[in-house]
Amino acid sequence: MEQKKPFRTDLTAFLGALSLFLSTVEYLFPKPVPFFRLGLSNLPLLVGLDLLNLRELGVLLALKVVGQALVNGTLASYVFLFSVAGSTASFLVMVGLHRLTRRIRFLFRHTSLISLSLAGALASNTVQIALSITFIFGPASGVIAPLFYGLGTLAGLGVGWLAEIFAQKSQWYKRLRDAQD
């Protein structure tokens, strides 16, 4: 049975809240280097790929980015701009790949959330490194780019793996998916 619009709006808001909640949880984990983020707040976006349409996913992205900036108090700083740029790049790549592989089902029976998460993480890292070099640390900081890419790859794989396990094990998610059909 197709879900009614108010339910889908509330689902988008709830996934946005989950993203904020996971962003808070992320601070509990020790960071190998400063400025590095694990990306746990991307989990709802990943699991939302099969639940929400494109407009709703865009709204979820906005809730995630603006919400984090409001909760953390960084809305009026460069941190917010970096977050917007990185999250948008990641979103475009993940959604683009997901929609593309769904259209070419004879080639891709199942698009792993691990691969989508990894692609998104690399896109986000690229944009944020470029912005950091251009506006904050200068050209000399390019030497640390390989370290950030390495850590970003590991984080992307980790978050993707968590999303994949959740999608397989969660009865809550299964019921939401079944209601789409």
């Binding site: 808001a13 809240a17 809730l63």
Partner: peptide
């Protein structure tokens, strides 16, 4: 309204 819902769920 959407942000209000999101924050309450949070």
């Amino acid at each position: 309204a959407l942000w209000g819902k999101t924050f309450t769920y949070y």
